[in-house]
Design a protein around this nucleic acid. Structure first.
Lengths: 136, 136
DNA sequence: TTCCTTGTTTATAATTATTCTAAAGAAGAT
DNA sequence: ATCTTCTTTAGAATAATTATAAACAAGGAA
């Protein structure tokens, strides 16, 4: 069980005051055992369902973006109309079930090290993302 | 120099009649030496610039989607507000220069084989995409 | 506490990419 | 040439995201 104090700490680290709404967002995002893949719309609906409290969509967007900027959330590169985020911010990859529109974690061991031989002068690697699309 | 006949063939293969507008799209897309990464908006503007002829945005969307469906274009999974396409439909990967918002091809040799150890029952792998984000 | 400043929430409007629509026009077969 | 079917087009509709600005809450200071 993740404690409210941890949520407050995460919020303060992200330069956000710990308000009721933001704590509720944290409850849904971080109070879990397993990694959580979501869109803003998923999160918005879950907050209503889980906490019984109403929240503005704008607040969800703002808070998610602050967490993303701070590194508490990861954005998953997928071609979709919606943006997907992940609470697992460690270096890992994904299956994407195209039909079900569902993401599944791939551990680094499932893929093995990826070694990039090419380099671009003046640029350094920020992240390496592997997306494996699945079909029936 | 790619010939008009090839464009017509590509169009017919995609179940599209070869109209003036679609030939113009082909000119911009396929009459090149190097691979071409673009958004619909890029393409729309280039058609005006290169051919001097006006085209409807809807026609660009429709034609690009038909080519994509047929496999003449590849969609590149990036988190961006816009969708990126690639005229290089061979199996390859990308650098994405986050600052410049620019894509750079990575040959398969630049990365080496990617072996997916995990599998999901009832599903098979449709594609494997590696996206390497670059920063300064 | 109470006051005050600054940050926050919210509903709503604005923006942007994409898709839809339906009428006018072009392609292709006969 | 004629006719049917497909295509183009402008503009409307949709949907995700971002911006706005007024009401409200948090946190510090007195």
């Amino acid at each position: 069980m993740t404690s409210k104090q941890e949520f407050i700490e995460k919020l303060r680290n992200s330069s956000l005051r710990p308000t009721k709404q933001r704590i509720n967002i944290c409850e849904v995002l971080f109070n879990r055992d397993k990694t959580f893949h979501f869109t803003i719309s998923d999160l918005f609906n879950l907050i209503k369902d889980k906490t019984g409290e109403k929240i503005s969509l704008a607040t969800v967007y703002n808070t998610v973006h602050a967490f993303h900027k701070k590194g508490y959330l990861k954005e998953i590169p997928i071609n979709s109309n919606q943006t997907y985020f992940d609470t697992n911010v460690t270096d890992h990859h994904h299956f994407f079930d195209v039909k079900e529109e569902k993401l599944i974690d791939l551990k680094n061991e499932d893929i093995g090290p990826i070694e990039i031989q090419k380099s671009i002068p003046g640029k350094k690697i920020k992240s390496v993302e592997v997306l494996v699309k699945l079909e029936d």
